[in-house]
Nucleic acid binder design. Sequence first.
DNA 1: TGTTTTTACGGGGTGCGTAAAGATA
DNA 2: TATCTTTACGCACCCCGTAAAAACA
Lengths: 303, 303
Amino acid sequence: MLDLRRLEILHRFSARGTITATAADLGYSPSAVSQQLAALEREAGIALIERTARRASLTDAGRELAEHAARILDAVESAESRMRARVGAIGGRVTVSCIPALAPALAPHLAELQRGHPELTVVAHETGSTTAAAAVLDRRYDLAVIDDWSAHPPAEGTGLSVHRLRREDIVLALPSGHPLAEQPGPANAARLRQIVGDRTWLCAPAGQLSRAAGDQRLTSVGAVPPRRWEFEGLHVLAALVAAGAGVAFLPAGIAREQAGVTGLRPVPRMQRTILALTRTTTREDPAIAACLQAAKQALGSGH
Amino acid sequence: MLDLRRLEILHRFSARGTITATAADLGYSPSAVSQQLAALEREAGIALIERTARRASLTDAGRELAEHAARILDAVESAESRMRARVGAIGGRVTVSCIPALAPALAPHLAELQRGHPELTVVAHETGSTTAAAAVLDRRYDLAVIDDWSAHPPAEGTGLSVHRLRREDIVLALPSGHPLAEQPGPANAARLRQIVGDRTWLCAPAGQLSRAAGDQRLTSVGAVPPRRWEFEGLHVLAALVAAGAGVAFLPAGIAREQAGVTGLRPVPRMQRTILALTRTTTREDPAIAACLQAAKQALGSGH
DNA sequence: TGTTTTTACGGGGTGCGTAAAGATA
DNA sequence: TATCTTTACGCACCCCGTAAAAACA
């Protein structure tokens, strides 16, 4: 009979692509991963991996078995979650991913949860929104907090549960002393063109959701900034706006917290959604549910 | 992570009810089963078994986990079958169940298959039709050959694949010298009443499908036998009919092969269906497919 | 030369069966 | 007393990490 831990190794290998990375993810040595994959091949009776001295890759059979492994591991995870739900105890290890901008708000709530439940281990990393969904499905994380700058957040499906935590307005952030900041009224297309055309445009690096959403709005109103500066991190952008380095689209909350920044609401309205992602197979796990609850408290609509 | 072999033990225990029987089914000692179930409880973190010195039984959590285990094992079995299908080699161990009346016809074909494939191990048992479906779903057998005396054989569903091998007429078997046997024409209701009312009625023990189907026909035509003798095995009944001990419903093939027996076709027609059952999860397993093919050759409609 | 993978080897853990004991009908 | 279950114990096996080697960029 196929071995479950070996199937997990194959599944992880299929997601990561190298034995070394697989070993790092699972806390094994590369040697162990190599040996276990070889043993799995013996069990399956068919070559799963094409071996090069420099690189290992899946064969067709390996890819198919990895897909089966995903379903098997889903079923096992469901069973484990159900058993834990019966016990009701909050414990074990929960891995959480959070986008950097929200981590400071989330971390204290997770720490408090951990304080109340000594059996619980929370491992939190910071990851961007774009890769989080795949990482949760890959079991690299049990819970991911992301933001989505598109008008309609992604629907459920493919084993992912989407929990909407909050909707937040996006504002055009200007230095408070800026003459255009004092003018009343929202930032419609004409005003946007006027402001953007005059100042350095501050935005996230390409590939970020906030960058794509901002670019789209600028294009749609025909605003062309004279200069673009790219910086990582919404709080960094906020500080740059306050220092007079330029203007940017920022979540209203971040703009409000940053002294020396005034936010103008664009028309039509722009929003981002703060989402939490879990696997549907772990929906009943009390530890993960508790972490999700903590995220709702930390980031939910009441704040 | 839950261990797959332990889940298999739990699943088998849930089907068999005692640790001793579970151990016998799986080829373990009762000690090993007891230890593994205890380890599974530790892994699951919840009591799965209510322990009495004399008897072990599942708790609610144990029952639920056993259901999960069934799904998990299904998924694993599917994966294994797919891998074996990719290899295409006919090998491994296949457990077959056959109703006693058909075993003599089936066994030579299985033996020949085994001769052609040294890697293949076939384990054949004889089991009645009534328990075979559950036994296949329980993984006690991979393939079961049964007969069904009702008008409409069971449909697929719940993970069972039904393969129709043959339809066979049922005849009213009389000793060849019997005056009523020589009269031409079929056995309609009036003639059935006449024959049955005069002779000892030979039939299978209660609980057999052939018994239920025969009783139903006698009742529907209002035939009341003066005496009933119950014997196990259709060939035994045929021999008794030939010896002049009475009359019986028998499959046409069995009646034809028995010297000294004449078969009258009842009106309306009675039939039984020879079926093979497999799990849908093993449908692609080449070894099981080959055994099914052998059964079709041995028992199929061409014979 | 550095990275990735595999093989050799040793130690620790796990799981099995045997044997014995406990418990119950 | 006979059966079912559990515990004690020892042995074999398996698995992992360390170390070294091989292959390739």
